[in-house]
């Protein structure tokens, strides 16, 4: 890489990444864990996973989790992580603000 210069942003980031990884290891005594780190109870094989993705990291998770949460609740997709609407927790979202429920309070006429 000594005689090559990145000519666009992506190449620049790759170079920075390599530099960072090299620095990262210097002076450290122990090696990173073998393979992916997937702690107990992690559900990872769905797309993309709840606690970790299939590489054992958080980079590939659906983010922010709140963006997907209501759909998980509705579809019963993560039954051990999110209260499911189908059986156990039909009213989980009852306290959430909703124009559909509170339509009488919605003043459409007066300023």
């Amino acid at each position: 890489m000594k005689n090559l210069k990145p000519i666009n942003q992506k190449a620049g980031r790759i170079e920075a990444q390599i530099r960072r990884e090299q620095l990262d290891v210097v002076g450290l005594e122990s090696q990173p864990p073998e393979g992916a780190n997937i702690p107990l109870g992690c559900s990872l094989v769905f797309f993309p996973g709840w606690e970790v993705d299939s590489d054992g990291g958080t980079a590939g998770l659906c983010q922010p989790v709140e963006r997907d949460l209501f759909d998980c609740h509705l579809a019963c997709f993560w039954p051990a992580h999110v209260p499911d609407q189908l059986n156990h927790s039909p009213d989980w979202t009852a306290k959430c603000a909703s124009a559909q429920k509170d339509w009488r309070k919605l003043d459409l006429v007066f300023p």
Partner: peptide
């Protein structure tokens, strides 16, 4: 000048919205 170091991998992840 060359202290002894060791490290561990930490994952900081999302909550459980429900627990049994």
């Amino acid at each position: 000048d060359d202290p002894i170091q060791a490290r561990s991998n930490l994952i900081v992840t999302v909550p459980l919205y429900m627990k049994f």
